[in-house]
Design a protein around this nucleic acid. Structure first.
Length: 271
DNA sequence: AAATCTCCCTGTAGGC
DNA sequence: TGCCTACAGGGAGATT
């Protein structure tokens, strides 16, 4: 499941291969994603090139001189660079062929992702206009969290995963950050002190940045067909470890549901 | 207004 | 071994 670090790794991996390269064709084998791929995209993209490859939350923004290709990888999506003669598999839904001979290939078994052809300014698009600050930016900090959480009754984990609070913190990293900060996921957001929020913001940044670094260094050759970001190898302390011993105190980790999402924590270390 | 629920989809894991 | 079912998850949109 692509989290923010994997999306950033994807951005870094594809950028050098597609930047300012002329698109010669686009092939859509499956248009039914989260939202349908429109004929506007297939009609208008050939002949254009991407002058920048940006990321906002878990969205990738591939910008042309006219419109922007907005891509989300959903749960199971990936973007890869493959040779022009690479055979398409069952879930290879879109190929963008460049004059250079390379293909930018979108694959997504579960079709939770999307590929939208949107107008500038992209930041005004409904999917992007209500996003909170980037977690790795200076706008995201303890004071900010404290201010926004005033009177909020919701669990701090739900608060942290609300994209209007902070953009792109998914379930895995919410669990890990709360463990590292020693905060119980079910604690009411409005009842957390500024200093604990400072700690939490710091842990969110640390865990995301570490994963970005690992992905960036592991993923040398993004042109290979089996290029997999390296963050899977990172040691997760709580996520997926319900019932197993806490790495810090050896007590068994609890697993509950918060906001329909699997939530794991240590009842001894997190208060 | 804020919080919670539903739904999209299919690979994988667990049960038998 | 193989079949069957439950489950996971991002996040928009609907509902409470």
């Amino acid at each position: 499941m692509p989290e923010l670090p994997e999306v950033e790794t994807t951005r870094l991996g594809i950028e050098p291969h597609i930047l300012n390269q002329l698109v010669s064709a686009i092939t859509v084998r499956q248009s039914k994603l989260r939202w349908p791929i429109t004929s506007c995209l297939t009609d208008e993209l050939p002949g254009l090139s991407f002058h920048s490859v940006e990321r906002r939350a878990k969205y990738l923004l591939l910008k042309t001189s006219t419109k922007v290709l907005l891509v989300h990888l959903g749960m199971s999506g990936s973007l890869r660079i493959v040779p022009a003669d690479a055979q398409a598999g069952k879930h290879d839904h879109v190929d963008i062929l460049f004059e250079s001979g390379l293909i930018l290939r979108y694959t997504d078994p579960r079709k939770f992702g999307c590929m939208l052809w949107i107008n500038e300014p992209a930041s005004s698009h409904p999917l992007l206009s209500n996003l909170g600050p980037e977690p790795l930016s200076n706008d995201f900090n303890g004071r900010y969290l404290k201010t926004l959480s005033r009177n909020k009754q919701t669990a701090v984990k739900n608060f942290l995963m609300d994209s209007s609070v902070v953009a792109g913190v998914g379930n895995i990293y919410a669990n890990e950050s709360l463990f590292n900060a020693g905060i119980r996921p079910s604690r009411k957001a409005g009842k957390i002190s500024t200093s604990r929020f400072e700690n939490l913001a710091q842990q969110v940044k640390a865990v995301l940045q570490e994963a970005v670094d690992v992905g960036g260094t592991t993923l040398r050759d993004f042109t290979g067909s089996d290029g997999q970001p390296g963050y899977f190898k990172q040691s997760l302390k709580v996520y997926g470890r319900g019932g197993k011993p806490c790495v810090s105190c050896n007590n068994l980790l609890k697993e509950i549901r918060l906001g329909q999402r699997s939530t794991v924590y240590c009842s001894h270390c997190q208060t």
